[in-house]
Design a protein around this nucleic acid. Structure first.
Lengths: 227, 227
DNA sequence: CGCTTAATTGATCAGGGTCAATCGTGGTGG
DNA sequence: CCACCACGATTGACCCTGATCAATTAAGCG
């Protein structure tokens, strides 16, 4: 496996993350041979609209946002990806979406052509890829559902629950992203997100010890809010 | 049944193979053998939330809506599928979505287990399935983008353009679905959809000869409205 | 310790939802 | 054949949620 540092050199961290990841696998994952580990600084670009979708990625650590910039400057975030997620599949000749690091990230970067080659010899890789694509599909469908006719509080509560579900500690976790990121993901403004969170706090549903930290005080109430 | 030849993994062949495959979409395919043709009446159920996702479907004719019913009775439509679309893939043990016939439909119904078995002997089937899943993914992502912070007119214009693009005649076509269906797809109310359409008509962008028919008079204006 | 950027909070406004009345169309039966 | 009915669509009046504009506060960071 080749190691390369794109955005900034963080060899020690990358190595640590890489070995942790390898250790976590029961059996060696055939896919790993086709990938190289890269690190991206917070705010760094992973791929851009219009680019060639010749790579896809797996998150080892950190958080990635996949988004699109509309003609009038608005930004819509399609998904946040965190540890274990695979993203960056695209069908056409050109990418339609951008991907950026929300926080410092360690990723495995797979060259599509290499993986396709491997997949010809190993059915399990094909199955894996299919699985990953389906996870992306399920998420995108869930996101559509969330963005449909739902109130602001409902959206924010949903977001908190979804984010808590993928955190180690489901009752106290860090939002890696800014309020603006959350707003762009939920189709709201930063002010509305802020107001919803403040309201939840006033109602004793959550606590906000600091700007990024969330403590869920009343999970049931939060689930009611998420409708 | 014609077997598509996916050429060898020679360095430059990957792209060629992909486009060749895309071009072959309309030809008879090995998959067809694993499916049975069924017809569903307008309004009929194809599958339901909570069911076993042991089949998936290809539309031969008619229009299908895939949707979810929320706790409070609201309905969110995730997608409309028409001729050529494949839908009904789901990852988990239980379906999360419903599918119903918008109009009388003829579908090919595939048993998942059978297809998986076939796929073991024929790589091209695996590729096809992957493509179909990716098409669903691309659509779901586009839908999320559409539902984000966009005005009502923008949404309706987008919908008309998307629907015209999959119609024979791009300037005069039938909306198979009701205004309510459109509203539930766009996250709007029936009244707002109606008002937007009326406005477009008043502005000379479209004509509405009858309740389901749409004629696009000024495609450019419509594209501007879609932003 | 300023400087910059993110977040909160408040006041006002508007887009779209809600409620309600009317229209249009297609189907049914007298 | 036409009167009636049922259902979907349109249109209007009003209201509410969340966007916008603006001021303040908090938090990093050199």
């Amino acid at each position: 496996m080749v190691q390369m540092a794109i955005s900034s050199p963080a060899p020690a961290a990358a190595f640590k993350a890489r070995t942790a990841w390898l250790a976590a696998q029961d059996k060696p994952e055939p896919l790993q041979a086709a990938g190289s580990v890269i690190t991206i600084r917070e705010g760094g670009e992973i791929f851009a609209e219009g680019g060639d979708p010749d790579h896809f990625y797996k998150v080892l650590s950190g958080v990635v946002r996949v988004c699109k910039f509309l003609s009038d400057g608005r930004r819509q975030i399609e998904a946040f990806h965190s540890t274990g997620d695979v993203f960056g599949f695209e069908l056409g000749q050109e990418r339609l979406l951008n991907a950026e690091a929300v926080s410092d990230c360690v990723l495995v970067c797979y060259r599509r052509r290499n993986v396709e080659k491997l997949a010809e010899q190993d059915d399990s890789i094909t199955r894996q890829l299919f699985q990953y694509a389906m996870q992306n599909l399920a998420h995108a469908q869930g996101h559509s559902l969330l963005l449909g006719r739902r109130g602001a509080a409902e959206k924010v509560a949903n977001f908190l629950l979804a984010w808590s579900a993928r955190s180690k500690d489901k009752h106290s976790f860090n939002l890696e992203m800014t309020r603006q990121d959350i707003a762009d993901y939920l189709g709201l403004t930063i002010e509305t997100v802020s107001r919803s969170l403040s309201q939840f706090e006033r109602d004793g549903v959550i606590a906000l010890p600091n700007i990024r930290q969330v403590r869920v005080l009343d999970n049931e109430a939060l689930e009611d809010l998420a409708a």
